[in-house]
Simulated scan of single mutants.
Amino acid sequence: MYLTDLEETQWQVIKKILKPQERKRKYDLRKIWNAIFYIVKTGCQWRMLPSDFPSWELVYYYYRKWSSLGEFDLLLNNLREKVRVSMGQKAEASVGIMDSQSVRWGNNRSLNGVDGNKKVKGIKRHVVVDKNGFLIAVMVTIACVHDSKAAYLLARCLKELCCNIKVILADGGYRGDVSEKIKNTFGYLLDIIVSGDKVNGFKPIKKRWIVERTFSWFDNYRRLCRNYELTFDSAEEMVKLANIRMLLNKI
């Protein structure tokens, strides 16, 4: 029994959303999910998964299978809507907040770049969250890709998710022609919010600070503190799984 294990109510919510095929199995799918959440939380290697879980090969097989089938996306979207409704909000968000986070590399075989501004060698996570800080979309690039260049691709990810976003709040790093390009192509209004008070030091900007809080939530999951993933797809899936775990804790 680990602190990362699913409670019965949480497991029933996952089963209701994903509707797994009922058949005889050697290992209960709940144990597979427990193993995946253990890896995301503790940051351990797949091959070092404790022996009380099913074999790491089987856990990794299901991880890749569910990732390719879009199960994590489906679960994330449904959980986010469920939690929003329980908070008295509409199921779908109309306002998103966009930002990026540079993450140091932890795997020397993965693609990486250098963010010259933050002096970080590794990758960048580009995310869009709602007003609660719940993840809507995520895209991973090498760290040297500028925010304004990645914004268009991230907007395309949003469009593919068929979400109800109308306005996206962003910081000064997204200024330029990209705002008009996103509006004409996808219909999203990119609202750039820049702090005008530089005399009195740092002050959190209303609504914009929410995405920074989301990044701090990521640090509670050791798998996200550095980039240990070989591919960008896997790096994105780990972010989604961490957010799924956070939303499950709110049920």
Rank of each mutant, 00 (worst) to 15 (best):
F134D: 02
K31E: 14
Q101M: 11
G43A: 03
A137C: 07
N108Q: 09
N107H: 01
N227Q: 02
K159H: 15
F72V: 13
A155T: 08
K198S: 12
N117H: 15
W46Y: 05
I165G: 07
R104Y: 12
D219R: 03
V140W: 04
L189P: 00
M246T: 06
I165M: 04
K183S: 13
L230I: 14
N220Y: 10
S179V: 11
L189H: 13
K149Y: 00
S51W: 07
Q12M: 12
L135P: 02
D177Y: 10
V199T: 11
K118W: 03
E7A: 11
V211N: 08
T42P: 07
M48Y: 13
L49D: 01
L111T: 11
E212P: 06
S102K: 05
D28V: 00
I193L: 09
R245Y: 14
L158S: 07
R104C: 14
H126P: 04
N249G: 15
Q21C: 14
A235W: 01
L74C: 12
I205E: 05
G88H: 00
E236T: 03
S148F: 08
T214R: 05
Q89C: 13
K118R: 05
S110M: 03
A242P: 03
F215E: 02
L74E: 15
R213C: 13
K149S: 01
L189T: 13
K124A: 05
I182R: 02
A91P: 04
V40D: 01
D233P: 00
T42G: 02
Q21H: 11
L74I: 15
G43R: 03
A35M: 08
G201F: 08
A242N: 01
D73R: 11
I136E: 01
N112P: 01
V167P: 03
K149V: 08
E160H: 07
K149M: 00
K131W: 01
Y63R: 04
S148M: 06
L158E: 03
H126D: 06
D171W: 05
V199E: 13
S100E: 04
D28S: 06
D5A: 00
L49I: 14
G88L: 09
W217I: 03
E229Q: 02
G187C: 11
N77Q: 15
D130T: 10
D171K: 02
I205M: 10
K203N: 08
V95Q: 07
K159M: 15
V140I: 12
K183M: 10
V239K: 03
V140F: 04
I210L: 09
K24L: 00
D147T: 04
L241I: 12
K15N: 14
I17L: 02
N132W: 05
Y62V: 10
F37A: 01
K121I: 02
T231P: 08
N220A: 10
V83A: 10
E212K: 08
Y228G: 02
K149W: 00
Y60D: 08
W11N: 06
Y63H: 04
A170V: 01
Y27A: 11
G43Y: 05
I210Q: 06
V13T: 15
K250H: 09
K166G: 10
S148P: 00
V40R: 05
K183R: 07
D115T: 04
L3M: 08
K207D: 15
R84F: 09
L153G: 14
S100M: 00
W105Q: 11
Q21D: 13
N164S: 12
Y221R: 05
Q101L: 08
